[in-house]
Structure formats: C-alpha cells, structure tokens
Design a binder for these strands. Structure first.
Lengths: 122, 122
DNA sequence: ATTATTGTATTAGGTACTTAATACAGTAGT
DNA sequence: ACTACTGTATTAAGTACCTAATACAATAAT
C-alpha cells in the first residue's frame, strides 16, 4: 500500500500508522486487524517486520491477540482517547520546540499554521 | 554535549543540529567550525560519524572546507535565509499533516499551539 | 478427521550505521 | 626543518534492522 522512509525503522513507522488509525477510529475499538501475512502483503514488507510492530503495540496495550484467531484493537475507550490526546500533544510539542529553536515568533508560527490549515480544507 | 536518539542515524541528527545553528546564526556566516575531532569529542561520537555529517552538509553547499585549515559556514546569506525559511515551512507542514491525520480541527490546533508557545516564553 | 488460517518462533544472510584504529597529504606556526 | 594541526581515506568489527524460508501449535470451518 504505502511506502516507508528509510531513515526510520519500518516497524516503528508501522506502529505509528496503526496508532493513528486507532486514535481516529479508522480501526474501530474491538475491531479485527488483518492477519500478519495480509498486512505484510499490503505494506509490502516481511511478515516478521509486521509481527514486530504488532507485538510492540500489544505490549503497549493497544492490541490484543487470540493466538489462533487474529488480532483485535483494544475496546478500552478511555485508552483510545488518551492515545489520541497524547499523539496530538506530542505533535504540538514537537512543533513548538522546533519553532522555538528556529527563533520564530509565536505570532509568525500561529499565522503559518493557520494559513496552511485553512488552505488544505475542502 | 547532547545525546542522540537511537531511532535515527546519528549523522542525520548532527546534520539537522548544524542546519539549525546555521539558520539561526548560532554558527555565523563564514564562521569557522570546530575540527572533526573536536566535534566528535563534543558530541561523544566517532570522528567518522562527524565526517559523514559534515561532508553531506558540504555537498548541500552549507559548508566549505579548506583541506588543511578547517571548515567554514557558507557566507551566502540568501542561502542561509532560504535554509531558515525551508526548515520553518517543513516543520509547519509536518505539523499540519499530523494534525489533519488526527482529525483535529484547525481551531483546536491553533489554540494548542498558542497555549504552548505562550507558556514557554519568558 | 481434514484443511486452511491464525499467531509465533527460529535460523540464516544481507545491508546500513557506528565505532576503532590507523594512515596520509597539506599547511600554519615555531 | 620540525611540530601540530587540518581534512580525508581505509580496514575491520559489532550491532540493529530487514528479509527469506521454514516450522509448529491451536482453532474454525468443512
């Protein structure tokens, strides 16, 4: 499906992708994931790489696995909300740090964000 | 000096760091850099890793090297301005993309940026 | 019972990055 | 001339990540 960047481990990129999909309910709470082999086909990567990403997400509590049936998204809604909030805050914090390091004023930064955000809406 | 993350090649992180310092004139146009061996000491990495970062920056035109004297920041002010603009735009664009993918509204995002930016000023 | 599919584990090989240890050519300062 | 510093190059080793090719136990569907 997608292509991945070579500057970061693929399994981390897959983790981030699935986290986003969980946080935005593109993967619904309690919903089933494709199998390791299916996802590997879709992502065009080795099944082992998918396996690694998924087991890490499971370790974080976002996924559950039934050994012989498949994998499911957690149905803990508060955890999903917390995930969404966390991804949003981390993105914002990262951006603010970058902007500060570039000595860009608050007004300039807010203006730039507003322009790009408005420009991309339909 | 700093520590580096393990999820991205160190030489790329050093490149990004030096780019920021050039863009904000912490490294002044035409100014001299520390030697490969000095920087390796400061960054706590191998000289080869510094060498790689610096030669890539040179390939991009941001640094110049005198083989037996040392390395200098470019004195092309328009290039430095373009670098600053580019780093700022890329950061903003990256943030806007992330926010869109999280289905966060423009108003929410701008509000979050404003709060964090104001909160961090002295 | 048999078949297909699930997650999981293992072994091997290749590539990129990093480190370590040198070495060399050129120049500035003495 | 000598010394100390530049950038640069090379060789070897270790680690992390990715891929490939299997294999196994467990279950759902038939």
């Amino acid at each position: 499906m997608d292509q991945f960047q070579s500057t970061q481990p693929i399994y981390l990129q897959i983790m981030a992708l699935i986290k986003r999909q969980i946080a935005t309910a593109q993967l619904r709470p309690g919903g089933q994931l494709g199998s390791v082999r299916e996802l590997a086909m879709n992502y065009q990567v080795n099944p082992n790489t998918v396996q690694r990403a998924l087991s890490e997400l499971e370790r974080e509590g976002l996924l559950k696995s039934d050994r012989t049936v498949g994998r499911y998204v957690t149905d803990d809604l508060s955890m999903i909300e917390a995930l969404h909030r966390s991804l949003f805050l981390e993105a914002t914090s990262r951006y603010v740090d970058e902007v500060n390091e570039l000595n860009v004023s608050a007004d300039e930064a807010i203006k730039a964000v507003r322009i790009q955000l408005k420009g991309e809406n339909t």
